[in-house]
Nucleic acid binder design. Sequence first.
DNA 1: ACAATACTGAACAATATGTTCCGTATAATC
DNA 2: GATTATACGGAACATATTGTTCAGTATTGT
Lengths: 180, 180
Amino acid sequence: MDRRQRKTREAIYRAFTALLREEGYAKVTVQQIIDRADIGRTTFYTHFDTKDALLRSFCSEIFDHVFSVDPGKEKTHDFSNAHDIKAKVTHILYHLREHIDVLSGILSGESDAVFMGFFREKLAEMFSSSVPKDPAVPYDYRLNGVVCGFCETVRWWTKHSGYTPEEISDFFFAAMAITA
Amino acid sequence: MDRRQRKTREAIYRAFTALLREEGYAKVTVQQIIDRADIGRTTFYTHFDTKDALLRSFCSEIFDHVFSVDPGKEKTHDFSNAHDIKAKVTHILYHLREHIDVLSGILSGESDAVFMGFFREKLAEMFSSSVPKDPAVPYDYRLNGVVCGFCETVRWWTKHSGYTPEEISDFFFAAMAITA
DNA sequence: ACAATACTGAACAATATGTTCCGTATAATC
DNA sequence: GATTATACGGAACATATTGTTCAGTATTGT
């Protein structure tokens, strides 16, 4: 690849990640990226068709890195058939941590955030007394997990709307293992 | 409230929900709502400061309805101290079902969807052999729950970044009850 | 009937997107 | 070192959306 291309691409990535940290994905505009990267408007659009295309490309790079199997561990553990899935998860978490600040920018859902904000507030209140008190896990984490598990259940339901509320409720309690 | 206000407000809601179903929240523009509701531009902005304000107001109405305790059940069950939390969940699901098509429009996260799309694809592959085969719950649902549980764990981590990967991993496996 | 107020329409500035054209600068290649 | 290819830059452009302003009209509740 041309050295010029590499440099501008890196400048775009640098600007993009910085803006992600500062404002989150939804608020970042192409114009800001252009200004921050100090490149021509035309140049940006020859590299990426749109802001989403940039994000896609960016995610590809991150995940190629995060899901690359650690060569050192590859020899001692067998990840392929789920025996050491926990070690694999830990390994991925280590990689993710390297991008942890950028992740916040991407994960700050802006579109469904309002709805989810309302929903989760109500749900947290409702589930607060049902979450098992496990000293090994922060209560806050567990409650959040149950609340999100329910949100995700509803989301799943919107795509499999053939089930009845009772069935959905059964699935949820079977999966979350909380006091019913 | 003035009858005119009620009528325009309802026209806005009608247009908004229809557009939510058709395109999802992120793609809907204020202009579309105005055109669909067949009202003046000025009128919309006297009712709502912004598209987000409309969504907030809309969510308030939905949740006031969804979380209203069923008077019939209120007498026979004691929801307040989590004895019949499962019945309460089912009850909420019934209410949610009435808005199920609108929910899809709101829940179709557009901003973090790209990232999550990548992430979840990889995770589903990874967890596919770790999900317990429970005949009472669709495998698809369970896998989705585990994948989302992990995504949400990462999201939670970005807001509690003091923990180590090992700790986070422990929390996750303690909460999800899958084969480690 | 009348006063209050909600709606309308048009125009406006500001901002963002994505494209086009052309000149310049920097590569890779001979 | 000269040449050719191509990446970059800048300015201008059309288009779309947002949110505001203002004067005039229509509808309400009293």
